[in-house]
Simulated scan of single mutants.
Amino acid sequence: MDPSTELRTGLIERIAQLFAEHGASAYEGARRESVSALEHALQCAQLAEWANADASLVAAALLHDMGHFVAVDSEGDAIDDVHELRALPLLAEGFGAAVVEPVRLHVQAKRYLVATEWAYGARLSPASVHSLQLQGGPMSPDEVQLFETLPFAQAAVMLRRWDDLAKEPRKRTPPLDYYLALLAELQQQPFVDSKIGIGSLSIA
């Protein structure tokens, strides 16, 4: 087997294992939502697919919360868990910027939308409102301007909107294996990490 193919196959297996280990869990405390982590991921990917998003963005929708699986914060609800950053080293092993960057930016996209759409914040779930305060609140005008210049900003905004909607209990979706097959079909591209800071993040 070609080493690059073996690397991609191994990554898909690790992603499947992480979903198997953590997907049934529900967010607790102030972060509690009405669906499990796996249900949320599948619904988000389904919404991306229904919107005719390209395969990379569907993959990002599926994987955007994997940071919750790769580390556990002992501080619980008291601090920002920076989950959008935790899985980036894992994802960058096999996926290009079109997958990795929307994942990295989806929290910043929430801050952006709260700052630029007056009705957006009123539609957030209580858990999202709670986490927003820990994540820095609405963007400043300078942050908004910088965010809008980023290559994957609009993809992240689309992902954020699906993220907000993907919380419907008992909604029917394709199984995880369906989306794992999509991940396997994505061709690996070099991941370039540039350094442009917004808040506490370094984003490309």
Rank of each mutant, 00 (worst) to 15 (best):
R172G: 09
E117V: 09
L182P: 08
D164G: 07
G199Y: 07
P175T: 12
E168T: 15
A48Y: 05
L150E: 05
E21G: 05
Y178A: 10
Q17R: 11
V103I: 13
Q133I: 09
G137C: 05
V114E: 03
F147K: 00
A30L: 15
P89K: 06
V129Y: 00
D142Q: 13
L146V: 13
L134W: 03
S125L: 10
E33G: 10
Q145L: 11
R14L: 09
R31P: 04
L91G: 01
A45K: 00
A204G: 15
L7R: 15
V72Y: 13
Y120F: 15
P89V: 09
L124T: 00
G199Q: 07
Y120I: 03
F152L: 13
P141W: 06
E13I: 04
L176E: 07
T116V: 12
I196T: 15
L62V: 05
G121P: 05
A51R: 12
I203Q: 08
A55D: 15
V82R: 11
A109L: 04
V70I: 12
E93T: 11
R170Q: 14
D81H: 06
V70W: 04
S131E: 10
E28W: 00
L57I: 07
D77G: 12
E13N: 10
L201E: 13
F191K: 09
V103G: 02
R161S: 07
L42K: 01
I12E: 04
G96M: 06
A97N: 15
Y179M: 08
P141T: 05
E101K: 08
S36Q: 08
R31V: 06
A87V: 11
R86Y: 05
A119W: 11
R86K: 15
G94E: 02
A156D: 06
H68N: 12
L176A: 07
G29N: 12
G136N: 00
P174N: 13
A115T: 03
V129G: 06
G137R: 01
N52H: 13
D177E: 15
C44I: 03
L201N: 12
S202F: 12
Y112H: 10
V144A: 02
G199C: 10
V144D: 01
L62F: 04
G96P: 07
L62K: 02
I203H: 06
G23N: 05
K110G: 10
Y120C: 03
L113G: 04
A16E: 11
K195N: 15
H83Q: 09
A48F: 05
G23Y: 00
H22D: 01
L113T: 04
D177K: 14
K171G: 02
H64Q: 08
D73Y: 09
G94K: 02
F147G: 03
A37S: 11
S74T: 14
A30R: 15
A153C: 09
